[in-house]
């Protein structure tokens, strides 16, 4: 109230950088998505999920168990000899809580069988071989169980290009692909993923001791808010004006722009007026 007697109504502080979700709504939406994409569209009731011990795959296991029933979900643990013991244990915890099938396939022999011929492969190359080997396992087990591999990649890592092309991104359906990592954390807490999995530092666990945020050079909390503004059409200066360091904005900006190719199918030389997905256009569910 001012001295002149006028009550003053102030707008609540609004944040343009908010990436909050309503977890109950998103949970319901994604469970319906899984049922419709698998059962209604494809007539398949069985899901195969690679459960790494991290929050993304834990959340997908929880969602698949709810959507399809735990008896119809195979959680596959695929350790390599250098994988953290904690990851294996956390993955087992997810299987135990969700009551999905627990399948263990050690990929060491398969990965080392190839790397024997490439002994000088860099850690990045070794990580890519492991990621692609895991997809070979998931697709093959899907054929064995008459199921469908379900992806676990989130929107943050997709946008930052922080994944192995034709590995993590290859399952035909993915419930998390439009959720930022911080939104995955919100949803994971809501569905009951154990705190020790949600709160531990995110890691691809391809190299011992690595964490996503150290690799990326920025925290997910900051990256997600910058990504959200960027995708909504704000320029770098406008994003920085929201309170972000220019270095962080630039880092995110450059990573996104350097990795558009990773979010597409292979580039095909167009030579006809009927090129697939250029002229001949049919939706994925047609």
């Amino acid at each position: 109230m001012t001295a002149a007697g006028f009550p003053i109504v102030r707008a609540p502080a609004a944040s343009a950088t908010d990436v909050r979700i309503d977890p109950a709504l998103v949970r319901r939406w994604l469970v319906t998505f899984l049922r419709e994409e698998m059962i209604v569209r494809r007539g398949m009731r069985t899901a195969v999920v690679g459960v790494s011990g991290g929050v993304d795959s834990a959340l997908v296991a929880f969602l698949c168990a709810e959507a399809l029933g735990p008896a119809n979900v195979y959680g596959v643990r695929m350790p390599y000899r250098t994988s953290a013991e904690e990851s294996f244990r956390h993955a087992g915890l997810v299987q135990e809580i969700t009551k999905i099938h627990d399948v263990v396939v050690d990929i060491t022999a398969a990965v080392d069988g190839y790397l024997r011929y490439e002994p000088d492969a860099s850690p990045t190359r070794r990580g890519n071989v492991m990621a692609r080997q895991r997809m070979i396992v998931l697709f093959d087990l899907s054929a064995k169980y008459g199921g469908l591999p379900v992806g676990t990649g989130n929107k943050s890592e997709r946008l930052l290009g922080y994944f192995t092309w034709h590995a993590d991104d290859s399952p035909p359906i993915n419930p998390l692909g439009d959720l930022f990592k911080t939104q995955v954390w919100q949803l994971a807490r809501h569905v009951g993923v154990p705190r020790e999995i949600v709160e531990k530092p995110a890691t691809a666990d391809l190299i011992r001791g690595q964490t996503d945020e150290e690799d990326l050079g920025i925290t997910y909390e900051r990256a997600d808010r910058i990504l959200s503004l960027m995708l909504r059409g704000y320029g770098q200066a406008a994003i920085a004006a929201c309170g972000f360091r220019r270095r962080d904005v630039r880092l995110v900006w450059d990573r996104v722009n350097a990795t558009h190719w990773k979010r597409h199918l292979p580039t095909t030389a167009v030579v006809s007026p009927t090129a697939i997905n250029e002229f001949y256009l049919r939706p994925v569910d047609y």
Binding site: W29, T32, F33, E36, E37, V40, R41, I173, P283, V284, D285
Partner: peptide, 8 residues
Amino acid sequence: VGFEGGKG
């Protein structure tokens, strides 16, 4: 209603 290629 229904999902069409991921779009609900």
